[in-house]
Design a binder for these strands. Structure first.
Lengths: 226, 226
DNA sequence: GGTTCAGCCTTACGGCGTAAGGCTGAACTG
DNA sequence: CAGTTCAGCCTTACGCCGTAAGGCTGAACC
């Protein structure tokens, strides 16, 4: 609660802080699931009118920037007391976790352009870990590009699929399969049927398979990059 | 342009068609670069009022679905007279091309849920190519997930970076570098400086490096997946 | 005691998606 | 032929949105 010590109507009511506004915005976005909250709803939750927010933020874009940076702040930095491979794996898992916890974050990122402090610190730590692990500058750039691409892309697809578990998959896949001429997309239907029948299928497992394949490749190429 | 063929028995004053509306929507989105056009602007370009569009589409969402499907229709299907690896490489390059030509497409995809005809055909062809190449169902699923994740993620990052060429990179990186305490993110600044000075750096090359690493890994694992 | 100014509010504008319902004229019915 | 239907388009209106312009209040400083 942001209440005032029950004394007077007169003392300065405790002012907004960028911190508080951004944390509230993240909370609202998480609750709604429909992306960033409107300025009106955000202000309402803060017990304030929407225009008051413009005294602390030039426009909505810098609020979105701040929200994205808060998400980056949640990602575990790679620890330096571990091999680069283990550190990168942990970082990837942590990053996917953060992006899944805040499903609006990925969609926001591609419209953002000025990275925040936590974002920069994150990238710096990742590059540093790779460099310590024996990667050249170019090699670290390749590894970073590849890993981040995979993490973003995997999570993007995970979030866009309309089911979260195999049970729901069956519910979703059933109607689609019936609606589609079955012999028109034979490979697709075959795969859906096959995967839907496997009760153990889960995103986390699939994520790990691709991730390990990439890490294997990086390990193999590490010293061949100039 | 959109005139009726002379022979048709029922020549209404030339009506809108879903085809035309969707193609116009894609064109407008490409022109503006700001995502999907509003119903009002789309109608205006078609010489019509916005509400008329609702006679052909239940709501805006199905227009967005159609736009995404048009983008998928642009992606070359893997040709069956080529090795799976070459086919997958070509498909990846073509897909990145389509996503770059229509920068709004990726952001739309994660809010869409019902795939169109071209999308289904595309997935079916890719899976079929992998199956013919010796992948098991599970293996094809892994390969598809990995490749698509990489393509989506790479393109997402490429589109979100605020520069298109090394020259622009320098323009962008310069101010950032000055603004940031240089010794606070040493690895990051080192990498930016290093990459910015290399005139040959380009997205296409970077995309290929990660892609080939993934294809190598897939080739190696192909027969080890159940 | 007067001035300044951070912090909040009010009002208003143009844009958005779309619900509800009206008009028009071609195509079919008898 | 007149009468009916209905696809195709338009008008109006509602409640959202981001934010420009400007006003009020009271604490802090000279």
């Amino acid at each position: 609660m942001t209440t005032q010590p029950a004394g007077t109507p007169a003392p300065r009511r405790n002012p907004l802080s960028k911190e508080l506004v951004l944390r509230t915005a993240v909370t609202l976005a998480d609750e709604a699931g429909t992306g960033a909250p409107s300025m009106r709803r955000l202000a309402e939750r803060l017990g304030v009118e929407s225009m008051s927010l413009y005294h602390h933020f030039r426009n909505k874009d810098v609020i979105l920037d701040g929200m994205v940076d808060l998400v980056f702040a949640e990602i575990e930095l790679p620890s330096d007391d571990v091999e680069w491979r283990a550190a990168m794996r942990q970082r990837a898992v942590s990053m996917r976790g953060a992006l899944i916890r805040h499903p609006w974050a990925i969609s926001l990122m591609d419209s953002r352009s000025s990275p925040g402090h936590a974002t920069l610190r994150h990238h710096d730590a990742v590059i540093g870990c790779l460099r310590s692990g024996g990667f050249s500058i170019a090699g670290a750039a390749h590894a970073l590009s590849l890993l981040d691409s995979y993490i973003y892309g995997f999570t993007l697809q995970e979030l866009s699929l309309p089911f979260r578990s195999p049970v729901e998959l069956e519910d979703v896949a059933g109607p689609i399969l019936e609606q589609i001429p079955r012999d028109k997309f034979p490979h697709l239907t075959e795969m859906i049927v096959d995967r839907a029948l496997k009760p153990g299928y889960a995103y986390t497992e699939e994520f790990g398979i691709g991730l390990d394949l990439i890490l294997d490749g990086l390990q193999r190429q590490r010293e061949s990059w100039p």
